[in-house]
C-alpha cells in the first residue's frame, strides 16, 4: 500500500492536541510506517512539498495568518480533520468573544495586557502594532466558519488512544468505531 501523506498544523490552539498525538507513544513507530509526514511543526518542512491525503488542524482562527494557513490546508489536502475543542468549537480562545457588557472585547483584552497592568512599563502607551504582527481578527472563529471541514474529533485534547483509532480508521477509509463514552467532552 502506498503511504498516505499527512500534514498537521496548530492555529489558535495550545499544542495540547499535538502533544496528545505523541501520546500514542510506541505506536508512533507503526505510524511512520503507514504515513509520510508533509508539513508539520515537528519537522522542518515549512511549506507543503506535495498534495496531502489528510490534514489535521488544531485550533481555530484568531488572526489573519491562521485564516491564510487554514485556506492553504484546504486547498492542499483531500481530507481536512478538525482535532480538538479549539478547532471544532473555538475552545478557550473563544472566551474572548464572550466578554460580557463589552462593545469591543478585543480592545479590552489588549488594554488589559499592555496598558492597564500594574506591572507594565509602557512609556509610549502603545499596543503592539508592528507590520510583522498579523492582524488580529475581531473574534475567534472555528475552522468550519472559515473553510469546509470533513471530520471532527472532539475532546480537549482527544486522548492518544482516540487519535490513534481515528487515524487508523481514516487511513483505511473505514468509519471509526469509538464507543460514545470515549468521545465525551471534558
Amino acid at each position: 500500500m502506498k503511504k498516505k501523506r499527512i500534514s498537521t498544523i496548530s492555529l489558535a490552539g495550545c499544542f495540547g492536541c499535538h502533544m496528545s498525538l505523541l501520546d500514542i507513544d510506541e505506536r508512533i513507530l507503526e505510524l511512520v510506517k503507514l504515513v509520510e509526514f508533509d508539513r508539520s511543526p515537528v519537522n522542518d518542512l515549512k511549506r507543503f512539498k506535495a498534495r496531502c491525503d489528510i490534514g489535521f488542524i488544531e485550533g481555530g482562527c484568531c488572526n489573519e495568518e491562521n485564516v491564510h494557513t487554514l485556506r492553504k490546508f484546504r486547498r492542499n489536502c483531500d481530507v481536512l480533520v478538525a482535532v480538538g475543542q479549539c478547532a471544532v468549537m473555538g475552545g478557550l480562545p473563544v472566551m474572548r468573544n464572550a466578554i460580557m457588557h463589552s462593545d469591543d472585547p478585543l480592545r479590552e483584552c489588549l488594554e488589559t495586557a499592555y496598558l492597564n497592568s500594574p506591572y507594565v512599563y509602557n512609556p509610549t502607551n502603545d499596543i503592539p502594532n508592528d507590520p510583522a504582527l498579523p492582524l488580529i481578527l475581531d473574534k475567534v472563529y472555528t475552522c468550519a466558519e472559515v473553510v469546509k471541514m470533513d471530520y471532527q474529533i472532539p475532546g480537549c485534547p482527544p486522548s492518544g488512544d482516540i487519535l490513534w483509532q481515528a487515524i487508523v480508521a481514516l487511513l483505511n477509509g473505514r468509519p471509526s468505531d469509538l464507543p460514545s463514552e470515549v468521545i465525551k467532552f471534558d
Binding site: 472566551m95 474572548r96 464572550a98 466578554i99 472585547p105 483584552c109 488589559t112 495586557a113 510583522a132 488580529i136
Partner: peptide
C-alpha cells in the same frame, strides 16, 4: 534581528468574571 510573538489571546481579561 528579532523574534516576534505573533498571536494574542487576552486571557488576563477574559478570565475576569
Amino acid at each position: 534581528a528579532r523574534l516576534h510573538v505573533v498571536e494574542f489571546r487576552g486571557f488576563e481579561r477574559f478570565i475576569c468574571g
